[in-house]
């Protein structure tokens, strides 16, 4: 563990807290993409299967359970909670996310660290996470204005993998034989996708105005 990865994990956790706060406080999920939330739930379920096979640390286990539980809770809320589900922007959340699932799974079959079910699913979860935010960014663009909590959610989510990049640089410099190309390249792609959104988020913060994305 190092300060960069800890910062990344805490920022990731914060993004989920912000999202849950928004849904709990407003009893609304307007502006949130259910498809992105479902992709994230799939990412965690695929990546954290090793809960049953490996023990890394208490911290690791607790965080995995928290991420799985919270992502499933958000999906449940948006689909089944009587009040929250009414505010879901179904007509705007139209990204064809099944192509993302299919494409990243095929990539995982081809590009993995070991051709075993667990490693294929791990690689799949890494690739899928890199692009999971796309439905949300498309939804943000279509709905135009972004409320504070949604903006912060996306910001923290993007920042977390950026911290991981610093973590990987740190580990590369301090650990012997640290080469994790799949995670590093995917992490860079993932952070890069957020960069465009960050730009508009920063501009609106600088001008102290409500975040507006180009149509």
């Amino acid at each position: 563990m190092n300060i960069f990865r800890l910062a990344g994990d805490m920022t990731h956790l914060l993004s989920i807290i912000v999202l849950l706060l928004k849904i709990y406080a407003t009893k609304s999920c307007s502006g949130i993409s259910l498809k992105t939330q479902e992709l994230y739930a799939l990412v965690f379920l695929a990546r954290y299967l090793d809960l049953f096979t490996d023990f890394i640390s208490v911290y690791n286990t607790i965080m995995k359970v928290v991420f799985i539980a919270s992502s499933l809770a958000i999906v449940w809320c948006m689909r089944l909670h009587p009040l929250v589900k009414r505010s879901y922007d179904k007509e705007l959340d139209t990204f064809r996310h099944y192509f993302l699932i299919g494409g990243t799974f095929v990539l995982a079959l081809v590009l993995n660290e070991k051709f075993t079910l667990q490693e294929i699913l791990w690689a799949f979860s890494i690739y899928l996470e890199a692009v999971a935010i796309l439905p949300q960014l498309v939804l943000l663009q279509r709905s135009g204005n972004v409320d504070n909590l949604t903006g912060q959610y996306v910001f923290f989510l993007g920042a977390y993998r950026a911290f991981y990049i610093l973590n990987w640089i740190y580990r590369y410099l301090t650990e012997p034989r640290f080469t994790r190309w799949i995670a590093c390249v995917s992490g860079i792609v993932q952070t890069g996708i957020y960069a465009d959104f960050f730009y508009y988020y920063f501009i609106s913060w600088k001008n102290n105005s409500k975040l507006k994305l180009p149509a």
Partner: peptide, 10 residues
Amino acid sequence: VEEGKYHDEL
């Protein structure tokens, strides 16, 4: 690559 604890990150 040692088995088991390779994926030690979240």
